[in-house]
């Protein structure tokens, strides 16, 4: 459930980007940050974690408007992939309202994608988040690579039915905004239905 600040009249949703190392989680967030107008986004903060950086920032999209008079804010995070980042992963994933799983479309990364997805599911379950009923979007990133994994491959391996899927080339900004729009809409809808 999002954090509701009654004093500030604000509802804050937590959106987390998961995926195997170097699949493009930070690139997604960094590109998104540059695409958003300055007055709706905070500064991007970057921590040097092993192999890749952990990024986070928040933004208040004007187009979403307000919910019952409350301004909507999205807190965006990438999660460090290494196993030993347990406190960080818990801090980021616990209480998440939505997840974008950024898969690497390169064929030799299929096992990494599957292992990472299963680890994410396990983490979410340990924080009492029920995956089937959760705003989760699958993004196939790096669609410009040679012989990219066909769409449907991971869904079949991971038995994912009816999951929202997007294709992206995050380095060029392709598919980045579409992915985030979809998951944000689903988070807000779920909150309003709840």
């Amino acid at each position: 459930m999002p954090h509701i600040s009654y004093d500030n009249k604000e509802i804050a949703f937590k959106l987390v980007y998961c995926g195997p190392g170097l699949s493009g989680k930070t690139t997604n967030l960094a590109r998104l940050h540059t695409m958003l107008a300055e007055h709706v986004r905070s500064k991007m903060i970057s921590l040097d974690t092993a192999e890749e950086r952990t990024l986070f920032f928040d933004f208040c999209p004007i187009e979403i408007g307000t919910i019952e008079g409350y301004r909507v804010r999205f807190n965006m995070y990438t999660v460090p992939g290494q196993i030993y980042y347990e406190a960080s992963r818990r801090l980021i994933l616990d209480g998440a309202d939505g997840v974008v799983f950024v898969a690497d479309s390169q064929r030799d990364r299929i096992d990494d994608n599957i292992i990472s997805f299963e680890l994410m599911q396990e983490n979410l379950r340990s924080y009492h988040i029920d995956v089937p009923d959760f705003p989760l979007v699958l993004q196939y990133n790096k669609r410009d690579c040679a012989e990219a994994l066909p769409i449907g491959t991971l869904e079949a391996h991971l038995h994912l039915a009816n999951i929202d899927v997007f294709e992206a080339v995050a380095t060029e900004g392709v598919g980045v905004m579409e992915t985030v729009r979809c998951v944000c809409r689903r988070m807000v809808n779920r909150f309003q239905i709840d």
């Binding site: 921590l47 952990t54 986070f56 460090p80 030993y84 980042y85 347990e86």
Partner: peptide, 22 residues
């Protein structure tokens, strides 16, 4: 630094210290 940044950094340091210990 912002509160959130400090918190994330604290988690990262804690994780890396535990890793180094292990």
């Amino acid at each position: 630094r912002s509160g959130e940044h400090m918190l994330m950094e604290a988690a990262r340091i804690k994780d890396e210290l535990s890793r180094d210990k292990s």
